[in-house]
Design a protein around this nucleic acid. Sequence first.
DNA 1: TCTGGGGTCCTAGGACCC
DNA 2: TCTGGGGTCCTAGGACCC
Length: 418
Amino acid sequence: MIALVDCNNFYPSCERLFNPRIVDKPVVVLSNNDGCVIARSYEAKDLGIKMGTPAHMIEEQLIKEKVAVFSSNYALYGELSRRVMLTLKEFVPEVEVYSIDEAFCKLDLVSTEKLHDLAVKVKSTVKQNIGIPVSVGIAPTKTLAKLANRYAKKVAKDTGVYVADTPAKIEEMLKWADVSDVWGIGSQNEKKFKAQGYHTAYDLLNANEDWIRDKTSVVGLRLLKELKGLPCYGLLEGPPAKKMVSCTRSFGQALTNLQDLKAATATYAGKVGQKLRREGLACSVLYVFVMTNEHRPRDMQYSPGLDLQLPVATNNSAELISYAMKGLELIYKPNYRFKKSGVVASGLVPVDNIQTGLFDQRNREKDKKLMGVLDNINVAFGKESLRYAVETSCEKWRLRAAKLSPVYTRWTGMPQVR
DNA sequence: TCTGGGGTCCTAGGACCC
DNA sequence: TCTGGGGTCCTAGGACCC
């Protein structure tokens, strides 16, 4: 059996933890740049605030309904997530951290009678130790466990736990679930399934496999098997090797001139370097892109990108920045209002496995030391203590984050009592 | 009237996830 | 004026090889 433990309204729950005044109030958390709503408390959901709604479109409602609004504070959420996951690992040895707010746990060693009690215990311990409410769904496969978790949240609310360990309990859940509730069925496939007359997850059990295969490829077939209780996905312990690393951002306001774009994009390239070094990886392909604002149809649109093949795989910020700048110069055209740019590294290889080039001029040992120093200084003295000149910080493109709460889990973010 | 077969690799685009 | 960011997987089709 597999459990899916999922934090309830994770980001709002994190904000509430250090701000008891908003415990019963509607809370929303905004995306980067304070753009749109990406997390809501139950109270905010009840007000009809939808996921992904642009904040500026519901500004009046937020004020009128006295909704507590926060910019996203990933440093805080990441730390609380880490603590929740540590607590889970005290109960179960095999835990797959699936995302910032959920984890699969393998429960093969737990007898059937004890599953429910264990789930209840996990839930109360996380609440007691960390302060974050979670729901637990238990079932024979990952896909069913996801569904059981949803069922626990929406139907078995009193306990927040649902154990789908018998055919009857699985059937009850499948008959309740809309096809769009199933893990792996997004909006496109929802349309296809419903047009064919499949509305609930239960309807899918008897669906024609050739049809499923034709419309949704092997992905759909696996999903079907999982719904029938035949596991296709095992527990993945430890994160799988990364295939790409990126840093892309919308700007606080549109940028037109090359210098501003360079400043922003160089910063992203530097960040990519940092991330690669943290993972012990180097990249052999670097993709750079800029984008105009597609939400402004009357603006001229131009969203080019360019792949650069690097002669020698690298994670050196200076080198990545210089390639990114070269790419940017090639794709840049004046007079467009650019809203976003980004840098994506792929062709990743472990650093100790880099093929050196015959004509390579760089002193890579020296580079490595320099990057080590750069990273250490930035860890010790805060994020951007040391950076390359081209990464000039600039109010024009800097993200908006007007409603950022403190990182309460750091010394500098501790609430003070006067 | 007739135009092989089998295979690999790469890429763009679509769909999905949180 | 204001609409997020970071990922993964699969497929079809083209290029290329022998």
